[in-house]
């Protein structure tokens, strides 16, 4: 059963066409990797799915859990289970990280009609997560991403992801700024969430991250559309021949 279906999507950013006739279908429980060179439109696709303000959809449709995704506000998409790990998470000075986690968590609980947690209950839940993953919980006391190192920011994204238990996880260049240990931890965290019902879209330039999160399907994107789809073996072609090898193979 599909969770996300993109049909002939056309998208413009700052009067420039970035995505041009893209089709993509992700089923529940699947891990997809979307690879491509810088500027091919990978990140724009992530922004389109999450409803970023700079993105202008010219045509096509996106269906998420059998609903029209494009008519939803960004926060509704989030509450319905779409979570993006940002390539560069924003810094929000003055806003306590724990308070932010609590706010986001309880909004989602409310949306789902579930019970909200108070600070003590939530802190207990978060401590379980941080201990399990070996995350230093000092990041809870600081302001959201403010003055965080690249690794700390990505760890914070992971923590939010585990807490919010999303159904569709989008990882935008998750490995940028991460050392191997941190990347391994992120991989473990995501694998923990994969219960056969959640789906992942990994957007990446490099193969490295795919050693830790194994994709079921690999797509190669170029010129605003997907030019090749297959299994992990595509990654090996990319390793050997580069993106040029793929383009040549299709033309």
């Amino acid at each position: 059963m599909s969770i996300l279906e993109i049909d002939n999507l056309e998208v413009e950013v700052e009067d420039k066409k970035i995505i041009d006739g893209l089709n993509l279908k992700i089923n529940r429980g699947e891990v997809h990797a979307l690879m491509g060179q810088n500027g091919c439109g990978k990140s724009t696709l992530a922004k389109t799915i999450t409803g970023h303000f700079a993105v202008k959809v010219l045509g096509g449709a996106i269906t998420y859990k059998n609903r029209d995704l494009l008519s939803m506000e960004p926060e509704e998409r989030a509450n319905r289970g779409i979570f993006m790990s940002f390539q560069s998470p924003r810094e929000i000075p003055g806003v306590n990280n724990l308070y932010f986690l609590k706010t986001a968590y309880n909004i989602k609980q409310e949306f789902l009609g579930k019970e909200e947690l108070n600070s003590a209950q939530l802190l207990k839940k978060i401590k379980e997560l941080t201990e399990e993953l070996g995350i230093d919980d000092k990041i809870l006391k600081r302001y959201v991403n403010d003055g965080f190192s690249g690794g700390e920011k990505k760890t914070n994204e992971l923590l939010q992801m585990l807490l919010l238990e999303p159904d569709l996880i989008i990882l935008d260049e998750i490995d940028s700024g991460l050392d191997i240990d941190a990347l391994k931890r992120v991989g473990e965290g995501i694998n923990k969430l994969l219960d056969g019902n959640r789906s992942v879209l990994i957007i990446t330039h490099y193969k490295r991250v795919l050693d830790y999160i194994k994709p079921d399907v690999v797509h190669v994107m170029s010129g605003g559309k997907i030019i090749k789809t297959g299994d992990i073996s595509i990654v090996n072609i990319l390793e050997d021949k580069g993106y040029g090898g793929i383009s040549n193979a299709t033309s």
Partner: peptide
Amino acid sequence: DEQLFYLRQRGIN
């Protein structure tokens, strides 16, 4: 706008 989007992506209106 980017800060707002970040928070909205986490489900906050």
